[in-house]
Computed example of a mutant assay.
Amino acid sequence: MTAELILRWLHVGGAAVLLGTGAGIAFFMVMAHRTKDARLIAHVSGTVVLADWVFTASAVVLQPVTGYFLARAVGWPLSEGWIVWSLVLYVMVGAFWLPVVWMQHRMRALAKAAVAAGEALPTAYFRLFRIWFACGFPAFAGVLAILWLMIARPVL
């Protein structure tokens, strides 16, 4: 097995983790939110926060590293148009993801506090959820666009 093949495998695997974890997190958060059950939301958002740190954060760190070494191994200049646009989109996705991580922590805390007080979810939770939900669309579209660029490698 060559270094290039290992790098390709790691890079594609990281992309799959980013896409899959993002889709899974979104699905489970939305399904929990729909119940409006603070106890369930507190539990699911706790799992989501953990998954984001274990899977998403590790893939976020590994993607540029494997991408850099893969480009060097294959001979693609980093100034290649599709690579530049992938990096621009990667930064954009990160600009949405970082606040989303904070929102998930905050929504979890608000849900736990509601459970502890025996109260309904506060207005702040619902406001954060709407923002969290809205941030998911450009972030997910960005990841899909990056995947397309990686596969098609168009001349830009």
Results as ranks from 00 to 15, higher is better:
M107A: 06
R72Q: 08
W102M: 14
I83D: 03
G75K: 07
L149H: 10
F129C: 11
A73R: 01
S58K: 01
G24W: 07
V100A: 06
A141E: 03
A139P: 05
V48L: 09
V91N: 02
A57L: 09
W132L: 04
A26T: 11
G22E: 00
K112R: 15
I41C: 06
I83F: 08
A139W: 00
A23L: 07
G24V: 03
V49A: 14
W82R: 02
W132S: 04
L40H: 14
L5V: 14
A152Y: 06
I131P: 02
Y90N: 10
Q63L: 04
I41N: 01
W53C: 05
G75M: 07
K36T: 10
I25V: 06
L40G: 08
A139T: 10
V17A: 11
G14I: 02
A59L: 00
T123Y: 06
A23P: 02
F133N: 12
L89Q: 00
L5W: 11
A51L: 10
A120R: 09
A114S: 13
V101A: 07
I6Q: 09
H43I: 09
A152S: 15
V48N: 01
L40T: 05
V155P: 15
A32S: 13
A15N: 07
A15S: 12
M1T: 08
A3M: 11
V44Q: 08
A120V: 12
R39P: 01
E80R: 15
L156G: 07
T47G: 10
A95N: 09
V30G: 03
A116I: 05
F96R: 10
F126W: 14
V91M: 04
V54W: 08
L149K: 09
S86A: 10
T35F: 04
T21Y: 09
V143Y: 06
A111W: 00
T66A: 14
A71N: 15
V84L: 03
T35Y: 04
G67N: 02
A59H: 08
V54K: 05
F133R: 12
V60F: 05
F133C: 12
L7D: 01
F96A: 13
S45P: 02
L5N: 13
G46Y: 01
A139M: 08
G81E: 04
W53G: 09
M92S: 07
G142R: 00
W85Q: 12
R106D: 15
E4N: 06
L121I: 13
K36R: 15
G13Q: 10
P64L: 09
P64C: 09
A95P: 01
H105A: 07
T21G: 14
H33C: 02
M1I: 11
H33K: 03
F137C: 14
M107P: 02
S45L: 08
A32N: 01
A109T: 09
L10M: 07
T35I: 11
L110S: 01
R8Q: 03
A38I: 00
Q63P: 00
F126T: 05
A59F: 05
V48Q: 00
L70H: 03
V30N: 12
A26C: 15
R8I: 03
D52P: 05
A15E: 15
P138A: 13
I146L: 03
A42E: 04
L110C: 06
F140G: 04
V100N: 13
G118M: 08
